[in-house]
Write a protein that binds this DNA or RNA. Structure first.
Lengths: 334, 334
DNA sequence: CTGAAAGCGCTTACAG
DNA sequence: CTGAAAGCGCTTACAG
């Protein structure tokens, strides 16, 4: 039961390997009908299926791409991956998913592995820690697209959310509902990741536009593990906010854990909006008002951009930034 | 910037390709110190990294496995995938994830693609539709392990939940809480998928053990899209159940949507237990009592089994069924 | 201790 | 219309 190769097929059909190869690649231009049929039969009888590894070696293309996600725990990541896989499968590409866990060291290891495996291109949620590495790939004209995050100094096709608008949407809605004391919870900002930076800045800007003071105590940006206490502290201030914005789904989890444990009534005691449309938003009690990212469209776009780049290796592809519109989904939490 | 090969390194170091290859594969047995150092330098200066595709072709191993998941929308699947990836990455294996969408045709396409890509083995949540195909792989002694589902007639290492126990745990708890009218919602059973079959049967069996009558109207097994109405119908019966068991997370979503829309009080009006420990179980209002699958352990076990099979291609590996213990997590919904 | 040669399973000019 | 030959980038007996 050793695997059968193109040579076996050729022998069986009484033609040369070249001809079988032509047949397999649908280069029928001058192929005789009888030859075609003979090969077809041989392939079927032998149950032959080509060794893609061998083909890849020769063709210098693996029809595989790599996706390096910063943190698979975010819904956004999983949705984006799903979209990429769907698109790629339609285009007969495979995808290898890697989870960098927000760790530049892991990220580098994955990039190296993926390249060693000769993937045709990479879609990355860059951690921000491997700037030179990425720059090198770009200099080599290696197909790559960034997702979710801008890396200063690196010019590459990037698809991300219009984060400013996301915060605006939320703050505007809070204000419309009569809130003036609006708090925000975010993961640590020291990492200078685009979504955090932009959403926080826009939050401040939005307050300003509404002539609301920015109260530093109303903004918490720190590790998820200690977020619980932070929420408690903020809510136990003498004059706590009446509305809370969660920068992403993981932060939202923390806030929800707090509000549940302390029997806080939403939106009675505090109104709540989360960026990222979590799976349970619709049937949470109360249903959660969220700002949804069009994750599916974004993933698809990234895959499209990458496959295009892979397609025309020649031309310098334009390096653009694609901003996607978030959408406010009004439910009951505000 | 054309990629540099082992030949370049050899030239640069003034040795033969063979020697470089030995070096790269740590076969230093008789290698001179100076040679080693020279090669090391050449590798560094050139920034060489081996082409794994070429190596794979020669070695007949891609250090890549495929995972075919039945439906990526289940938390269970995503957790299992995560565990497999973690384990494989530790072992320097790559994984290609495919989502069959519960469709045997897609499943077959993926199996063919994965084999063509020469993956060293496959972990599958079998749809049940490609029995002969799987049997063929097994006959060829191709490394494979099944997850979550038993396929009658196919003998292969399989890891799955002790589904009977899962239902028992739930029903026992309902009874302990004084419930006698226990309903169950499940996806269609015509597909004869193990988890559904076993959980439903065990639900009936558990009722019997508690000397409770099995009321056919209390058991609904049908498509997710129409589950909403089914819930409504059951709950509007003259004598509706006082406790509901959701066979999996997707079913739970439907029940929760219903209970929310109809302002049903949990556990006051109905008690609720779901199999699968959903992400929001802890902070849902009320917090949800669930039966958790040890998805992480299960995924890891599957990966271990597969890599073992890949390791000793020679021996007929034993084909066993590994049952994992579910765990009742008591919270507030019952 | 190291190198020349064959070969993994394909594809692709090129010749006929 | 089809085939012989070279080559993709490695690894691996084997010889020396």
């Amino acid at each position: 039961m050793k695997p059968i190769t193109i040579a076996d097929v050729a022998k069986h059909a009484g033609v040369s390997k070249s001809t079988v190869s032509q047949y397999l690649n649908q280069r029928y231009d001058y192929m005789g009908e009888k030859t075609k049929k003979r090969i077809k039969q041989a392939v079927e009888q032998l149950g032959y299926s080509p060794n893609i590894i061998a083909r890849s070696l020769k063709q210098k293309s693996t029809t595989t791409i790599g996706v390096i996600v910063a943190n698979i725990l975010h819904v956004f990541s999983t949705q984006v991956i799903r979209a990429i896989e769907d698109f790629c499968n339609d285009m007969n590409f495979h995808v290898i998913v890697c989870n960098a866990d927000d760790d530049p060291v892991k990220e580098k290891r994955y990039i190296d592995m993926l390249r060693a495996k000769q993937v045709d291109g990479i879609i990355a949620f860059p951690t921000g820690g491997n700037v030179e590495l990425y720059q090198g790939l770009i200099n080599d004209n290696y197909p790559i697209v960034f997702m979710d995050r801008l890396i200063p100094g690196i010019s590459v096709n990037t698809v991300l959310l219009d984060n400013e608008k996301a915060s605006f949407l939320a703050v505007d809605h809070f204000v419309r509902k009569g809130h003036e004391k609006i708090g925000m919870f975010a993961p640590p900002i020291r990492e200078k990741l685009t979504p955090r930076l932009e959403r926080i800045n826009a939050y401040k800007k939005a307050l300003q536009l509404h002539h609301l003071p920015f109260h530093p105590d109303y903004l918490v940006s720190q590790e998820i593990d200690t977020m619980q206490e932070a929420v408690i502290n903020m809510m136990e201030m003498p004059d706590p906010p009446t509305a809370l914005l969660a920068l992403n789904d993981r932060v939202l989890f923390e806030i929800l854990t707090y509000t549940k444990e302390h029997q806080i009534n939403i939106p009675g005691d505090v109104a709540l909006i989360g960026i990222d449309d979590v799976s349970f938003a619709g049937f949470y009690r109360p249903a959660l008002t969220t700002v949804a990212q069009p994750a599916f469209d974004m993933g698809k776009k990234a895959a499209e951009l990458l496959l295009n780049q892979i397609g025309n290796k020649s031309g310098e592809s334009a390096k653009e930034i694609y901003r996607f519109e978030p959408q406010l989904i009004i439910r009951e939490s505000c």
